[in-house]
Amino acid sequence: MAGFWNPIVLLGPITNYLFLRLVGGDKQTEASQLERYKSQDSSKYDQLKQWQKENNSFWPAIRQFTNPWALTVVGCGFIGVVIEEGLRITLDPQW
């Protein structure tokens, strides 16, 4: 079980975040929404500004961990890890 944790696994989430922010258009979409809402719909603009203050696009707030959808995703991830480790032990007894 040596080498269970490897810091290189952080490259996936970091790369995904950078892609979404810089290449995928999230930053441009957000800027467009701010500009459009500011000129056309002040209530939506205020809601978006409030949402930006309360939410972080990289690190979720602690209160997000009580969100049923977040718990479902974490639970599915945990089940996936258990299945993967079970298969790894079953198929490669030297592991």
Results as ranks from 00 to 15, higher is better:
Gln64Arg: 15
Ile79Ala: 15
Arg88Ala: 10
Thr15Ile: 12
Leu18Ser: 03
Phe65Tyr: 09
Val81Lys: 03
Pro13Thr: 08
Trp69Asn: 09
Pro93Ser: 04
Lys53Asn: 04
Val73Arg: 15
Lys27Thr: 02
Ile89His: 15
Pro93Gly: 09
Val9Met: 12
Gln52Phe: 02
Pro60His: 11
Arg63Lys: 14
Asn16Tyr: 12
Gln50Thr: 10
Lys44Arg: 12
Phe65Met: 00
Ile83Lys: 12
Glu30Asp: 13
Glu35Tyr: 07
Ile89Thr: 08
Asn56Pro: 10
Gly86Pro: 08
Glu54Pro: 08
Phe58Glu: 12
Leu18Met: 05
Arg88Tyr: 12
Tyr37Trp: 14
Pro13Arg: 00
Pro60Trp: 02
Leu18Tyr: 05
Phe58Ser: 01
Ile89Asn: 14
Pro93Asn: 07
Leu11Asp: 06
Glu54Cys: 05
Asp92Arg: 13
Arg88Val: 05
Gly24Gln: 02
Ser57Lys: 06
Ser57Asp: 10
Asp26Gly: 00
Phe4Arg: 15
Lys27Leu: 00
Pro60Asn: 10
Val73Glu: 05
Lys53Trp: 11
Val82Phe: 13
Phe65Arg: 11
Gly3Pro: 10
Leu18Glu: 00
Lys38Asn: 08
Trp59Tyr: 11
Val82Leu: 14
Leu11Phe: 03
Asn56Phe: 03
Phe4Cys: 07
Leu22Ala: 09
Gly86Phe: 11
Pro13Phe: 10
Gly80Trp: 07
Val73Asn: 10
Leu91Cys: 05
Asn67Arg: 05
Phe4Glu: 13
Cys76Leu: 15
Glu35Lys: 13
Phe4Trp: 13
Leu11Lys: 10
Ala70Trp: 12
Gly77Trp: 05
Arg63Asp: 09
Ala31Met: 03
Gln28Thr: 11
Arg63Met: 02
Asn16Val: 05
Glu35Gly: 07
Asn55Arg: 10
Gln52Cys: 08
Leu20Asp: 10
Ser42Pro: 08
Tyr45Asn: 02
Thr15Ala: 03
Leu48His: 01
Val82Cys: 03
Trp95Gln: 06
Lys38Cys: 00
Pro68Lys: 13
Asp46Trp: 13
Thr72His: 14
Asn6Cys: 00
